[in-house]
């Protein structure tokens, strides 16, 4: 029996009054790695935003990491977000503080109070992304690849069941993209973390094949339910 981390049934996703994706039925299980592809403007980010409670679920039913998206409110959204890690391009590190302070800020914001535990956690996630010695650096003193690793480290802070990544390799050269992919895949394997990653990068998909969700014409096609016309 596989445990569903994401389960959407008959979901319609709106941006304002526009129906972006209709009749979405989707299950993603614990430890799965899933790509989300599709042309610009077809709703990849909208789907991810629905999953982390930024776009309200208006139609259909949805569950993410045990939270019912239909009943999640401003009071409970923070707790949904603590069970998942978000790596988004428009969610950057704070430039006015170093890496260590960035990570500590997130821990404090999510209710951590014990200083020793916080230090241990920061070391732990920096080690996981291979940047243990870079805690003192400011974000702009690091390469794009290093910054992306720190973004991932930040997403790992609250030991998430699910990581949502929106084009995490978007601005990186192929070699660095490769390193980031290896990191994400190893996190998924080692900690049984579910990862949903939106990308335009077919090189990456070819090299690290996995289940693919494709957005097109207002619908989602899933490589798991093989349709000849959709894969």
């Amino acid at each position: 029996m596989s445990e569903a981390v994401i389960k959407l049934e008959n979901v319609n996703i709106y941006q304002g009054a526009n129906l972006v994706l209709r009749d979405v039925n989707l299950q993603v299980n614990k430890g799965e790695f899933v790509y989300l592809v599709g042309k610009t403007g077809t709703g990849k980010s909208s789907l991810l935003k629905t999953l982390y409670g930024d776009l309200p679920l208006k139609e259909g039913t949805g569950h993410v990491a045990g939270f019912d998206l239909k009943t999640v409110t401003w009071k409970t959204v923070p707790f949904l977000r603590r069970t998942l890690g978000v790596v988004f391009q428009d969610f950057q590190l704070l430039t006015d503080r170093n890496v260590h302070e960035n990570l500590k800020f997130v821990l404090k914001a999510t209710g951590w109070t014990d200083n020793n535990l916080m230090e241990a956690k920061i070391n732990d996630v920096l080690e996981k992304v291979g940047l243990k010695s870079k805690g003192f650096k400011r974000p702009f003193e690091m390469s794009g690849g290093e910054q992306q690793r720190i973004d991932i480290a930040r997403a790992l802070l609250n030991s998430p069941k699910l990581i949502l990544a929106d084009e995490p390799t978007g601005n990186l050269d192929p070699e660095t993209s490769d390193e980031i992919m290896q990191l994400l895949i190893s996190i998924s394997k080692d900690y049984d973390t579910t990862i949903v990653m939106a990308t335009h990068d077919y090189l990456v998909i070819n090299k690290y094949p996995a289940r693919i969700l494709r957005t097109e014409g207002g619908k989602i096609y899933d490589s798991a339910n093989y349709h000849p016309e959709s894969v």
Binding site: K75, P78, F91, G111, N158
Partner: peptide
Amino acid sequence: RFLIKTMQMVGATRWFI
């Protein structure tokens, strides 16, 4: 706004913000 957005994204409560 960047600070606040960070807090919102990682799951800080409104009271904390």
